[in-house]
Amino acid sequence: MAEKTALLLLQMGGPDSIAAVEPFLMNLFTDRDIIKIGPSLLQPFIARRIVKKRAPKVAQHYREIGGKSPIRELTDAQGQGLQALLGDDYRYFVAMRYSRPSTLEALAAIKKAGIQRIIVLSLYPHYSKATTGSSLNELSRVLSQAGNRFQVTCIDRFYDHPIYIKALTEKVREGLAQFPDPSQVQILFSAHSLPQSFIDEGDPYLEHIQTTVRLVMEQLGNASPHHLCFQSKASRVKWLEPSTEATLKRLAGEGRKEILMVPLSFVSDHIETLHEIDIQYAEEAKSLGIERFVRSPSLNSSPLFLECLADLVRRVVTP
């Protein structure tokens, strides 16, 4: 019988209850891979003040989407689907960066299962030090403290993988099918923003995002006008532009009436799709006079997306 291989899925995570919102935000704002607030010794104290101020509003947003993030269940479904495609020699585990199960808990479960070989698969298609980089740094820290010596292989990006592009294009087409004349639709690719300083320092995230957009539009045959914008700015420093809000206002000012939002850098539904796009941006679009505002479905457990993940694993097992 072949030895099992662990598939360790890295994801951001999210609160599984309203009570978990504050701890989730605290974990986020104390991660210096994302944001450095003063000296490292003081960051937890400053972060706590920020979180106390933000938590009530964020908690209300989670109430409006059912009282929690669905990302754990959706990631489990992706893991189950991936495991089914790869067969009995594989077993999936999940490591959430800012919620549970933590990286430490995931590795403890792998060790308890008697598995030595781990294929680490980041569920962020576009590499950034703020997402995949942070998760891998946490993995490295935990591994360095572990008594067990694992054999680890990492897959840290797949922004241009042909099956990923095909899966994303399929979802865009599903969205376009909700309009009478897709050629009149403005496609807004909305990616999670990052501080501009990250890009200036060499982070490849923006280049990866731009490549994904180009490849998807090539698959679509450039049938509709498209735009790239950025959402979820989280501080006062300069972030990637244009913002999604500014892009909606510009298009409305040009008399555009039909918008398809395509969430990029998100492979599962969570607060940025279910609340920020589906509620906040939808309301903004309506107030601006946009008559038809649609979001393309998230990848979640799309068969094509699961096949992409399986292909990524097969390629590192048999280069």
Rank of each mutant, 00 (worst) to 15 (best):
A130P: 08
V213M: 04
L215H: 05
V213R: 13
D278M: 12
T273V: 05
A223N: 04
V185L: 02
P303S: 11
A285R: 04
K257G: 03
P23L: 03
I115E: 03
L7N: 05
F150M: 00
A234K: 10
V316D: 00
G13K: 15
L260P: 07
V21E: 01
F29R: 11
S235I: 02
I119Q: 03
N137R: 15
K36G: 14
Q178N: 15
L42N: 01
I277N: 13
M1V: 14
I46E: 02
Q145Y: 07
R100M: 01
R236T: 07
A84D: 06
H270N: 15
A246D: 07
L7E: 00
L121H: 09
T169G: 08
A108S: 09
R315C: 05
A191L: 02
I209F: 00
I277Q: 08
A77R: 13
I46G: 03
G202M: 08
L42D: 06
I37P: 05
D181W: 12
V51G: 02
L248H: 10
N300S: 03
I34C: 05
G221S: 13
F179W: 10
Q80F: 11
L42V: 05
L306D: 04
V21L: 00
G66T: 10
V294P: 08
N148D: 04
K112T: 13
C154Q: 12
E307T: 14
S102W: 06
